[in-house]
């Protein structure tokens, strides 16, 4: 946590340099997940929360921890379980016998990067407490409202293979995540590199983030996020973004398409993508390249499409192929 909550003013050139350095630093520790790292960095720049789906053991915690360290930010991890209570996340008040007053003990949510591991294992009430904090950027304990530190980003994980005893996130709640990222197995060469790196001069299976260098300060992260707001976005790009989200609503095979929040997040993510690609203006490529992680959890496929085995990504690819890209 830092007291320095004001954004540093950065030039675009400095911003681009810092972003690239951050990405490269994370990639040193997280091997074979280049696309995931890129999307995570974009998510951080766009100040969006991220839902990660992948089987256990692919480095989700390492990724979050590395990113927090490289961004010079505090990191907390909560393992969601069926008996987890909202106060276990937000915090609670304790009666101090010496001073004869109630004191507030802050929960793990008070950090810059929060990893909510297996978020779908906790009941809806606990999920809602976190999702409220994500949306409002503040928590209320015993009637007292406490703002969360900034930057604040939640990385929630879901395991796609074990569905017993889970509480699926409702559509309204998944919509609050900017991205849904699929983390997949690394390639053979990358896996060899991971095994070699992790087992070399280390004891046990603890995550080693010791070699990660701090690239940014929390204030610089805020500065980068601020930088995105000053980007050049042509009206045709906004039109393109809206056209894509509106097409998801009328597309045959999609029961419920993305709402305006989807369009907003798509544009914010496209800005982040532009910065990662060393530009201070958004192009249709930025929109199209980031559309899948932004929209895949915001649409609901029709029953027949699901029965036929179509995935949201396949349908969205068709949607994107049908929308004319702007040329001005």
């Amino acid at each position: 946590m830092t007291d320095k909550n004001t954004a540093d003013t950065l030039s675009f050139v400095e911003g681009i340099r810092k972003t690239n350095a951050l990405e490269q630093e994370i990639l040193k520790s997280v091997v074979g997940q280049d696309q995931v790292v890129k999307e995570m960095v974009i998510g951080m720049l766009a100040a969006g929360h991220i839902l990660i789906e992948g089987v256990p053991g692919l480095g989700k915690t390492l990724l979050a921890r590395t990113m927090a360290k490289a961004a010079g930010s505090s990191f907390n991890r909560i393992q969601f379980t069926p008996d987890l209570m909202p106060s276990d996340i937000t915090g609670h008040s304790l009666f101090d016998m010496k001073e004869n007053i109630f004191k507030i003990r802050r929960g793990p949510v008070f950090c810059h990067f929060l990893l909510a591991d297996e978020i779908n294992r906790a009941p809806a009430k606990t999920q809602a407490a976190l999702l409220e904090a994500m949306q409002e950027q503040q928590v209320t304990i015993e009637g007292k409202t406490l703002p969360l530190v900034r930057p604040f980003q939640v990385m929630a994980t879901q395991n796609p293979i074990e569905q017993e005893g889970t509480y699926s996130l409702p559509q309204a709640q998944t919509d609050r995540f900017m991205f849904k990222i699929f983390i997949d197995y690394p390639g053979s060469a990358d896996e060899e590199k991971i095994v070699h790196t992790v087992t070399r001069s280390s004891i046990g299976d603890g995550l080693d983030c010791g070699t990660v260098t701090t690239i940014l300060e929390p204030a610089e992260v805020l500065g980068l996020q601020q930088l995105l707001t000053g980007m050049t976005v042509d009206a045709k790009i906004v039109e393109y973004v809206v056209k894509i989200t509106r097409t998801t609503r009328s597309w045959n095979g999609i029961d419920f398409g993305a709402g305006p929040r989807g369009a907003i997040n798509l544009l914010r993510a496209a800005r982040g993508s532009a910065l990662v690609n060393a530009r201070d203006y958004v192009t249709p490529d930025d929109v199209k390249s980031i559309a899948l992680p932004v929209l895949r959890h915001r649409i609901k496929l029709s029953a027949d499409m699901e029965i036929e085995g179509y995935t949201a990504d396949q349908v969205l690819t068709e949607v994107l192929d049908s929308v004319e890209a702007p040329r001005l």
Partner: peptide, 9 residues
Amino acid sequence: IRSSFTEDE
């Protein structure tokens, strides 16, 4: 070249 192609595509 399809109408949905972006510049990069």
